[in-house]
Design a protein around this nucleic acid. Structure first.
Lengths: 129, 129, 129, 129
DNA sequence: GTGGTCTAGACCACG
DNA sequence: GTGGTCTAGACCACA
């Protein structure tokens, strides 16, 4: 796997793991239906406790990114979660803060948008392979 | 003040406070050089602990949004912080996650950018008054 | 057979199998005395493990829904189990939880009863054929 | 508290706890907005591990029955969860099984409905005090 | 071998 | 004092 955990940051390990898996799905490193390593396996690979991996997997299951198949363990869902009203609200809140902060620091609309665009393009690029 | 705290969310109160102050500065509700309520005053208004307000103020001071004068209390800095390399890195990380998540849920570049744009416009609009 | 297994739910496969067989008996898709597919056959049809089918069959035998003959395999019992004190207790416990949950969510007696009624009617309807 | 855990049954402790809390809310033993014991407190009272209580609380939080206030700990939500499409589906599935089982054992519609009714009445009765 | 459950103990962020 | 996080180890249900 491509997981890199930063043990220094204050972001919980399970949250870092969760985010990297979502990013992995977005850029196609993890295909729909693809099987993920077992909690034990991944925990060992990363050097963390299996319960921590389990927590990340379970959150992702609850959010609809993963499904846990009794026979094969965790796998990427074939149907990704929707853009719910609730998600949109949360996204806007988060963006409002990021934009406000950047705005105060002098970044204008064009600069911010071009960063977003380049990230989107990055995802699309990796998608091709 | 315009502060609204949600006591039921996972986000720490001091973080909510910090974000709302930054958003207030961005949209011009708080002008440069303007004085903020005293720690004691604000804490009472919102109904939270002194320490919590203090923590938010101190973080904002360290990040360069506020200056704290022993006599006059906290005020909005006359010079906003810069777009540092470090900030840019953090911003990109955060956006990468938000975009990946939205991408998985089917939101494409145009949709995401238009949300960002509308938030920027909102800030600019409020700025006029 | 009419069995549909959901491999992604939390409910064990053997439990899903057991429930669907009981539902099949209730609505008359499986007649008293009727022979069921062999463990091996059913396992292959559904694409699950032998042991899993075996477990479901054995539970159903112990509860009195099936009789298992060494030569002829499993068949639907000619005498269905009774409403024992123990069963009634369990049923009430389960209903108490379901009703409490529904009640909290605002469902009133009439709504709940009408759902039960429609399920009963459904069973009776299928019974006619 | 009124919690009674059965350590013999195969139902997970956290699930028993979750159910009893929901039942407590339904019958009014727990009022909206009321504060629950801390995880440590309740764990000690019941004689289980605090993580087990924590798990139950978190599930209930995610389902909308509890809210966790940073200042005061867990409390009963002021707004109960809705009857979602998904919940209704699950409820019907569960009822379908219970009814099928009871039907096989000879219980007819009237008998089943009267049990449901008496449980509903029980809840309403306790509500009055 | 897989995830689920439970226990236990430690440390930390928060208020 | 509250819940959140992480670690650790044990046992079990499931397939």
């Amino acid at each position: 796997m491509f997981i890199k955990i930063d043990f220094e940051t204050e972001m919980p390990i399970y949250e870092q793991l969760k985010r990297q898996i979502i990013e992995g799905i977005a850029k196609g490193a993890l295909k729909k239906g693809e099987q993920l390593p077992s909690v034990r396996q991944l925990a060992e690979d990363i050097g963390i406790n299996l319960h921590t991996v389990n927590k990340a997997y379970n959150i992702l299951k609850n959010e609809g990114f993963l499904t846990i198949d009794r026979r094969k363990g965790a796998m990427v869902s074939n149907l990704m979660p929707e853009i719910t009203e609730q998600y949109l609200e949360l996204l806007k809140e988060e963006l409002k803060y990021l934009i406000s902060n950047s705005y105060c620091r002098g970044m204008r609309k064009e600069g911010f948008l071009s960063i977003c665009e380049s990230i989107y393009d990055e995802i699309d690029d990796e998608k091709k392979f």
